[in-house]
């Protein structure tokens, strides 16, 4: 298969970027999207050009590192997969593929397709944890948790922190990401103890970092590689409002 790639190139955070077009040929249909990028990059190195910088690591869809906006979709046109799980058989031979970095004020471009997602870490540092010291805990089976609650908590905990939600949202809102963490812990008795504090602190940090306001479009859940539902956003809203009304 052959493809024309229109890729955003940007030297560094301060430089102005632009699209450049490349061609890749003889790509096997069972090549993954990122392997196709590897092939392009190896060609570029041989030509003495700088390869396209892009984030990636585990290539199994779990680390959340890969982050490309492909043909208008975060992680490409397939649903419920990360970029690294996308295969070239999903594209048409000869197709032009447009590849852009995440675009969101809170995710500034570092180089080419690499963006700075440290804002997500900062939100979690604000309260995305249960304050428990190593060792000072009870036996695991002392805290029975219903199968349904554990499953729902796990649904939300599947978030890989890739940033597709904020990158997709027309408002640059990180609500799905924040909600996934708040909701996952809110479903567990261990997490309930500091639930109010967590919701308030994480939302405050999210607002402070310049993420936008959720308008419930649902675009985030459509593009989320882990199909995390916006019903978790409802739970975040509930947690937050209940906490604020108690203040």
């Amino acid at each position: 298969m052959n493809f024309k790639l229109k890729i955003w190139r940007q030297k560094d955070a301060k430089s102005k970027g632009e699209f450049k077009t490349y061609e890749v040929t003889n790509i096997a249909s069972d090549t993954s999207f990122l392997e196709m990028m590897d092939i392009l990059n190896n060609d570029l190195v041989h030509k003495g050009e700088e390869p396209v910088a892009f984030d990636h690591d585990c290539r199994e869809g779990i680390c959340g590192m890969c982050s490309m906006h492909i043909n208008g979709h975060a992680h490409g046109p397939e649903t419920a997969v990360t970029t690294c799980q996308l295969y070239m058989r999903k594209f048409k031979d000869g197709e032009t593929i447009t590849i852009e970095p995440w675009r969101s004020a809170a995710f500034p471009v570092i180089k080419d397709l690499v963006v700075d997602r440290s804002a997500y870490d900062k939100i979690l540092q604000a309260g995305g944890f249960i304050s428990v010291r190593t060792g000072s805990v009870v036996d695991a089976n002392c805290i029975p948790i219903s199968n349904a609650d554990a499953e729902e908590s796990m649904d939300a905990a599947a978030c890989v922190g890739c940033g597709a939600c904020a990158a997709t949202c027309k408002n640059g809102s990180a609500m799905l990401f924040v909600a996934a963490r708040v909701s996952s812990l809110a479903k567990l008795p261990q997490g309930r103890v500091e639930g109010a504090r967590r919701a308030k602190a994480m939302v405050a940090k999210m607002d402070e970092l310049g993420f936008g306001n959720c308008t419930n479009t649902g675009a985030c859940q459509a593009e989320c590689p882990k199909s995390i539902s916006i019903t978790h956003i409802a739970r975040l809203n509930r947690e937050f409002l209940a906490a604020k009304l108690k203040d």
Binding site: F129, V138, A140, N141, A150, M154
Partner: peptide, 18 residues
Amino acid sequence: DQCVAQGVPFAREYGGLL
């Protein structure tokens, strides 16, 4: 014990135990 206290959603049986 530590992981459960941290909120790791391990698989549960219907009785609520691990």
